[in-house]
Every structure is written in structure tokens, then in C-alpha cells.
Design a protein around this nucleic acid. Structure first.
Lengths: 156, 156
DNA sequence: TATAACACTTTGATTATCGAAGTGAAGTGT
DNA sequence: ACACTTCACTTCGATAATCAAAGTGTTATA
């Protein structure tokens, strides 16, 4: 696991000590953009996270109060991971990271509707995104997806 | 140095592959919040980055086009690091990281004026912040600091 | 009741991080 | 002009994180 030592009490350092690694933000992305909830779903991420690192990061995010873990009552082998209130406040960081990547990546790959959403008001999109996640949807998927609320396209 | 392999073309992954470590964002923070410009100034950060890691991260950020390096003509031993246009676009990510840390750190330590600035309109603060950095100032310091423009306090 | 699915652990090799000490070029004081 | 300091790094060796592959135990499914 990573060193997490409270090197300073700077607010930015506080955030970096939680999310300053390759994987933590990508897991949150899969939750809030795609609606992923289980270990197996996170495992087949686009970036191919390994099982030990995934287990480590999920435990890390849980200990930091970003996500919560509960057993899936319909299938006791599974656990459902969800964002806490604190975790919901990570959405703006992910959003701005996506904006930066969309602007500066030489060949960004994302659904068209994501780029469409960039034309809408930022605060409005962020509000819809949070509401989507709170109600069990995500940016792209689910009945309350951002994509649906912006009337951009399908969203399953 | 870190592995940088283009694991996917996701815009968020693009950003994470640049800033997904403990130190890169803290260096940018020191530039845009405090106006630091040289290796020696970065070395005495609050979080005590080591010399080899600092050298590695500066080279990394330069290669990624986030910062530019030029020799200090007034003192040829020194180099001046500054943000590129691309680097300026990192400001919103740092801002949102600071917002998250300010809200969720149990005991955040920052100048009062930072917390004051949170009461102002986000887009306005971001605009002032970028202008401050472009003109050689930073959030807290310099004649064009955000602190000055918001009439919050001194700012040297 | 056998088999498969799921959520991890374990392992051992590779790679990154760390602090301490060292290097060479450029500036400063006398 | 010569010693001394400052500056921006490098080098080094120890510690810690990362990785892919294989294994474990529990719960579902045929």
C-alpha cells in the first residue's frame, strides 16, 4: 500500500495523499461514469488493473471514507461498492481531469456524448452528475444518467 | 521514473498518467499558489520532496509539455521553470483538489484568504488565478495575485 | 453433488522511492 | 585570482510499491 503520512496539512496535499496514484481516480471514474459496483467489474477496466492492486486500492478508498462496501444480498459472493458523501465530492476533480484530458490528449477516446456535454454549463453538468450517482445511475448509464438528463442520447 | 504507457485513450486516464503520483500536482501547486520557479524553491516544499524525485518529476512535467525550463540570465547556475499553456489548464484540477481538501481534511492548514476565496464565484476565481500566473504572479503572491484582485489582503 | 463464478491472497520478480552523500559549474568575498 | 559558497542536480544503496500469474475459500448454478 502507499505511504500515507500526513506530510503536511495543505488541503491539496490532503487530496493528493488519497488520490495521488495511478489507480484510485480510475476506480472512481468507473463508478461515476460507468456505474461499476463490484470487484469483478472494476477488474476489467480499460487499463487492466491487477487483482492485488485493485484489492489494495478498494481497501484504501474505503479506509479513507471515499467508498462504502456492503454485501450483495441477492448474491452473497459479491460485494457492492458505492460512493459515500465524501466520495461524491470527488466528482468535480474527475470532471476537471476529464476536461483537461479531452483538451490535451492527442487522440482522446470517449463516447460522443461526453464531448457534447462539454458544451453545456459546467455547474449544471456537475449537479446532474452528482444526482445521477446518488440515484444509482452514472454519467453514461442508468435511468437517471447525465446523458439522459441532457437529452444527448440513449443511456441504457 | 514512472511507467507511462498509454494504457487507454480515456481522457481521464490521459490526465492520470501525467499527474497520478504524489509529487507532480504538488509542484504545480507551488508554482501557481506560491509562485515558485527554481529547483531550490521546489526543494523546500512543505512536504519535503527529495532531490532525485524532484529532478525526475521536473523532467517528467517538461517532457509532458506542462512546464518549460529556461536558464536564468541573471544567474547562470539557475533555471526558471514556468507553466506552458497546457500547464495553465491544470489550474482547475488543482483548484478542485483544494476545494475537496478544504472540505474534508480534519484540520486543513492554509492562509485565511484561501478560505475566503471559496466564498467567491468559482469561474471568477479561476479566471483571476490564470491571469495571475500568466502575468508572473500566483494565487497568494505578486502584484497580480488572486488575493489582491479579490481585495482579500496583502499579497506581497 | 460436481462445477463454475466470484472476491480476493500469495508469491516472486521488476520497478519506484527515499534520504544521504557526492559532483561540477557558476557566483561571491577578499 | 583564489578560496569558498551556492545551485542544480546525480549517484548510491536500502526500503517499499507494482506487476502478472497462480492459488484459496466461499457461494451459486446445473
Amino acid at each position: 500500500m502507499k505511504r500515507e503520512e500526513n506530510k503536511s496539512r495543505c488541503p491539496i496535499n490532503f487530496t493528493v495523499e488519497i488520490f495521488g496514484d495511478i489507480w484510485s481516480l480510475l476506480i472512481i471514474r468507473d463508478m461515476i461514469a460507468l456505474g461499476k459496483k463490484t470487484y469483478g467489474e472494476f477488474l476489467d477496466s480499460a487499463e487492466r488493473i491487477g487483482p492485488s492492486v485493485l484489492a489494495d486500492r478498494l481497501a484504501h478508498l474505503e479506509r479513507k471514507g471515499i467508498i462504502a462496501k456492503r454485501t450483495d444480498e441477492a448474491d452473497k459472493r459479491k460485494f457492492i461498492y458505492s460512493l459515500t458523501e465524501k466520495g461524491l465530492d470527488v466528482i468535480p476533480i474527475v470532471y476537471e481531469s476529464a476536461v483537461f484530458g479531452s483538451r490535451h490528449s492527442p487522440d482522446p477516446d470517449a463516447p460522443d456524448v461526453w464531448f457534447e456535454s462539454l458544451k453545456h454549463d459546467k455547474e449544471k453538468v456537475l449537479k446532474l452528475w452528482r444526482e445521477a450517482v446518488v440515484s444509482g445511475s452514472s454519467f453514461f448509464n442508468g435511468p437517471d444518467s447525465v446523458v439522459r438528463k441532457l437529452n444527448l442520447a440513449s443511456g441504457d
